[in-house]
Design a protein around this nucleic acid. Sequence first.
DNA 1: CGAGGTGTCTGAATCGATCTAGTAGTAGCC
DNA 2: GGCTACTACTAGATCGATTCAGACACCTCG
Lengths: 365, 365
Amino acid sequence: MESSREGCLAVSERVTLLTLARDLGVSRATVSNAYNRPDQLSTALRSRILARAEQLGFAGPDPMARGLRSGRTGAVGVLIDQGLSYAFSDPTAVLYLDGLATELQGDGLGLLLHAGTGSRTDAELVRAAAVDAWVIRSLPEDEPAVEAAVAQQRPMVVLDQPDLPGVPLVGIDDAGGAAAATRHLVDLGHRAVSVLTMPLRPDGYQGLVDAARERYATYPVMRNRLCAVEQTLSAAGVDWVDVPVVECAVNDLDTGALGAYELLHRTPAPTAILALSDQLALGALRAAQEMGVTVPGTCSVVGFDDAPGASTAVPPLTTVAQPLRERGQAAGAIVRALLAGEPASTPARLPVSLVLRDSTAPPQR
Amino acid sequence: MESSREGCLAVSERVTLLTLARDLGVSRATVSNAYNRPDQLSTALRSRILARAEQLGFAGPDPMARGLRSGRTGAVGVLIDQGLSYAFSDPTAVLYLDGLATELQGDGLGLLLHAGTGSRTDAELVRAAAVDAWVIRSLPEDEPAVEAAVAQQRPMVVLDQPDLPGVPLVGIDDAGGAAAATRHLVDLGHRAVSVLTMPLRPDGYQGLVDAARERYATYPVMRNRLCAVEQTLSAAGVDWVDVPVVECAVNDLDTGALGAYELLHRTPAPTAILALSDQLALGALRAAQEMGVTVPGTCSVVGFDDAPGASTAVPPLTTVAQPLRERGQAAGAIVRALLAGEPASTPARLPVSLVLRDSTAPPQR
DNA sequence: CGAGGTGTCTGAATCGATCTAGTAGTAGCC
DNA sequence: GGCTACTACTAGATCGATTCAGACACCTCG
């Protein structure tokens, strides 16, 4: 018998498995088993251990030590772009996170959020993060934080972009969706189409996009969608050099409105604006309203995502619908599979569908 | 010299500090220093180590082991209620998280999100989470996950509720705000006031609140606000038993509308609805509109929070403004201080202010 | 009676780093 | 030469658990 006099709550030392074991005169292994393998000891001893642990203020095995030994932390790293404020303000991002969290919660996994804003320090944070797996959504191809995550050699899933070799990707048929939206406008008779795009590079650029910038965009999703738009328009006899493309530095309503102003002020005025996200499309609706441009009378507007808000916009937005929450769940399911040691059943790209509402119509003559 | 033949990328074994040290013929301490204390070794050796590490695919010291030894993980646990989907859909919660993240990002801390939904398994997750500190927002007093977090004996900060002994709390003057809003209605001449409240207990109850439920609410913030409303109305000569209070099971627009329907259908009809959150107030606006009740003509509506959306509502909402993002930042600052070993400078409750807009007016005669 | 089982519990190795104290080696200085 | 000062690096203890291979007692069955 050693010092520990009676059951007083000693303020001094930290209580560990060892402390508890000594106090009770059993081995560390037994105390560990009391927590992790109830079948390995008598229920009597187990409850004695648990009771004493409670008395001494022992909150259970140290998560860090346990993690080191067993190789699991119970956290999945989530890499988002632009910082949390942006991620939370983008409804499509919220739905993704929600789907992901829902899927992982069942396995007792929490989400460790980290931003990838292009800075070196982000990469440092990622390098130092103790997670079981990484889920990355919509980051540019050359993001340092992504490289840091890849270097950790842990299970990993990417949503949308970037496309990393050997890493399962959950994505949609971007080209198909963009083509369908474009074709819809073409079929209505539009030829003076303008395009509003999300960032092509994370450099804060706002304004008209030239061919070089388009070709060397580091966000492959936007590259693919733009490319599909170009092809579809070309096939309809519209020369791509005559199609103004404005890049919005931020994917939100205000910036979308800003970009739309620029497009609507050009001559000849566009008869249709094809926005590559609903946030931008909603911004375009607002800009049009403020400029007295009727939609779809004077100018049609098409979005992409079918985010919440698209259907209740005025007018309701014609857009390319994609399964937003389901994508998050799909990513979560792959993470679970990978952590369970199963091979990732990389799903095909999820299908999209054009939803026709009231923001598009044939051009006025 | 041992096996490791040349610089080939051995697929087989995991590379650790030790592997690398052996490979280079230096000690583990030196390799560790190459990463953590560049000043402790010659730059020549350091770059040799780093180069070789890159070759062997060593991504830096294992975060878990480092965490065990140094007692830091670089993650702050965030406990939210109702699951992520809800947290992300509530704009006040998003602003809080944004402020918190902003404040912590600088110190290289990530956010580990966990939900406290009242279930035992949540508590297990919390117990097993490797974090440096906990930040809790708006959970009931008897939440098991909270107890689990407290038991960990780590630095901790609470936002709004619950009020835990010895734990710094960032909050606002709830009673003052509620009293101001009530007084405003009273001063306008309202006597038939109805109240719409957020959950008093996390049991999903929806409907009229009786005295017992009000008294034994496990969400102290709502308890306090209701209490202030009661006192202010009593002082104005309105008997509290005549004031219908409807509890909404979820703090969102739809549920707020539901609650408002119930209130507006009662006789005598209220001349004013005091909603204890802006989400509920916005729901009330919608319900009123759908019922053909004009606001503020037939019925005034007051909110609480000044959330985004309050000022652009139709009509713009009179509400109690509180510094939403700043609260998150304040919580983050306290966490940083605690982690730095400084004592928490518990701030006084942050001030609120009544913002008068167009949703309130004197009652029609 | 001995072989085999079962239920409990222990000892010691191990996870992969950090950190303190300390050893060489070199240089400066009187 | 002898002393201090400084740089560059190392050995070994340590963080707090998990886990596997037994040890021991007791029971059962042929």
